[in-house]
Design a protein around this nucleic acid. Structure first.
Lengths: 301, 301
DNA sequence: ATAAGGTTATGAAAGCCGCTCATATGAACC
DNA sequence: GGTTCATATGAGCGGCTTTCATAACCTTAT
């Protein structure tokens, strides 16, 4: 029983099932028959000698421990397969393929939009697929080959990072707030304030950049909302103050006032990719983002 | 012409040809017919739409630029394939597979030997393949998936590193050397000495750890040899002094004297692996190495 | 030159493998 | 129990991969 080689198709099936949680959906997602997926997984499991998925003729398949261990490797393998195809097309002069980009909602949405616009114009044949998640998720996704490139706040210890830009954190308060009377607002002035922040880990990071420690930050948060408009509305009502990257401020902030801090905390934002094994599209994206940064720099300089 | 999926077998063929430089040898190496390899490469190139190898009916095949770009991705892909197989076997309770270990000759050879012995005893069914190279090569090989794990001097910026041990650098001189008269030998005392060092980049790193700068180190080296016995013989003849990690000293150093430095420079030695995508065998090896370190530590403590 | 010995390429045939179609089987919900 | 949802299974077709045999090509020696 000389085991035949495992197959890219089988691996794709496995990932698809793991992602969709269903053989039928997986089959649809990768343009195959449900039967094909079933056969593929049976063959794969047979060859590996391990059960990858706990079947359940009802609709939900659970991944086994073994499957959980193997899945990241499969993802990494398929990512390389895509990279190979892309490199080949690049060598033939065309920039095509898929690029999975991760972004954190609470990091300046305008940055992603600008870079994306430039990128799409420059490489119209690269299909961009967007993923949204927390900073931690985005960083993890890059490592696990779920996405090819992601915006993360630096310094990120894992993976390869290139600094794209920094964004200044500002305090937003209601008109007539006591802080407005001060000549300069430092980190200490924020300690006894009520904060309204986004429901994200990244809120704490931002607060700690003003000089608070983790515990203070947790205590200081009075309300948490998921949308920035909601947060600003609450600030307008005088329920508290908030801390935002400058780029997240709306064009006209009616009813609220932004105050710069002294010293101004700079949130560094970078792009994470898998250093050596990045796909060409991912490298192109990084280049585009860097070029955009420099263009911005020269505009304002 | 809907391109069929590329094939693991084709990719193996490509790597084999790239490594051996010959279709015939490659075929032999992966237990296939020369014809099969030829067909495989033709199919692969046809699908990718790129020429990967510059053929030459004489015996030597050169890799094209496109091939050069694609090759690392192929290696990474195949490494993941091996990792998948290993994870599967591990889940079934057996530790089997291949592990490619990189080592630098000038880093304590005893370390590798000890760890290897333990590892082989613990996991007799994991086949270990040794690679020797300079520190830079070893670090690069890990990144490029040519090896799974490698001993490198820390800090190595790339890849994931775990500290295994440190080794003290000592000065070795001929009997009667002026330095022997001093109470304590510091980095400054070495500046005007003639050095005999190994032909390796790692020599400079060691010298810089005593406080010299790069230029001083280059000037100070009088002779370079490739074997440590040769170096010690030259020191014995009074041609100069050398700097060695303690672990590289022979059991009885007849005719030469080792002097400890003050402060003693500690060369940190670690294991590099690909953080997320490491094969289970590579992780086991790291564990074994760490366990060995701790055992050593408790012996001497 | 021509032959010999090396290389890769090519064509045809065999066998295996992966896909689809059709259908069985199982679980839940009524 | 039947309906409806899911996955499993079996047979057959088509294609891909491999092998065998041989061609084409290059280099070197005679």
């Amino acid at each position: 029983m000389k085991a035949a080689h495992m197959n890219l198709s089988q691996l794709e099936s496995f990932v698809a099932v793991a992602d969709t949680g269903s053989f039928t959906e997986a089959a649809y997602a990768i343009n195959l028959t449900q039967s094909a997926v079933s056969h593929a997984l049976a063959a794969l499991e047979n060859e590996l000698g391990v059960t990858l998925l706990e079947r359940n003729r009802k609709g939900l398949v659970a991944i086994t421990n073994a499957g959980e261990k193997i899945l990241p490797h499969v993802r990494a393998l398929l990512t390389q397969a895509e990279a190979i195809a892309q490199e080949a097309k690049m060598a033939a002069g065309m920039a095509v393929g898929k690029l999975r980009v991760g972004n954190t909602l609470c990091l300046c949405p305008g940055l992603l939009a600008s870079v994306l616009t430039h990128f799409q114009r420059q490489y119209p044949d690269i299909e961009v697929i967007l993923f949204e998640g927390t900073m931690q998720e985005v960083a993890l996704w890059v490592e696990e080959s779920i996405i090819d490139v992601g915006f993360v706040p630096l310094p990120a210890d894992r993976s390869d990072n290139t600094l794209i830009t920094t964004d200044e954190l500002v305090v937003v308060v209601a008109p007539g707030h006591p802080l407005l009377g001060q000549a300069a607002v430092g980190g200490d002035d924020l300690n006894d304030q009520n904060f309204i922040m986004a429901k994200s880990e990244c809120s704490f990071q931002m607060m700690e950049m003003t000089g608070m420690d983790s515990e203070q930050a947790h205590r200081a948060i009075r309300y948490q909302a998921s949308d920035s408009a909601t947060i600003l509305a609450m600030v307008r009502e005088g329920l508290g103050i908030t801390l935002l990257p400058r780029m997240m401020l709306p064009a006209n902030l009616d009813g609220v006032v932004a105050i710069r801090l002294d010293p101004p905390p700079q949130l560094p934002i970078g792009l994470a990719i898998r250093s050596q094994t990045a796909s060409p599209a991912a490298k192109l994206f990084t280049q585009t983002a860097l070029a955009w940064t420099q263009a911005q720099g020269s505009h304002s300089g």
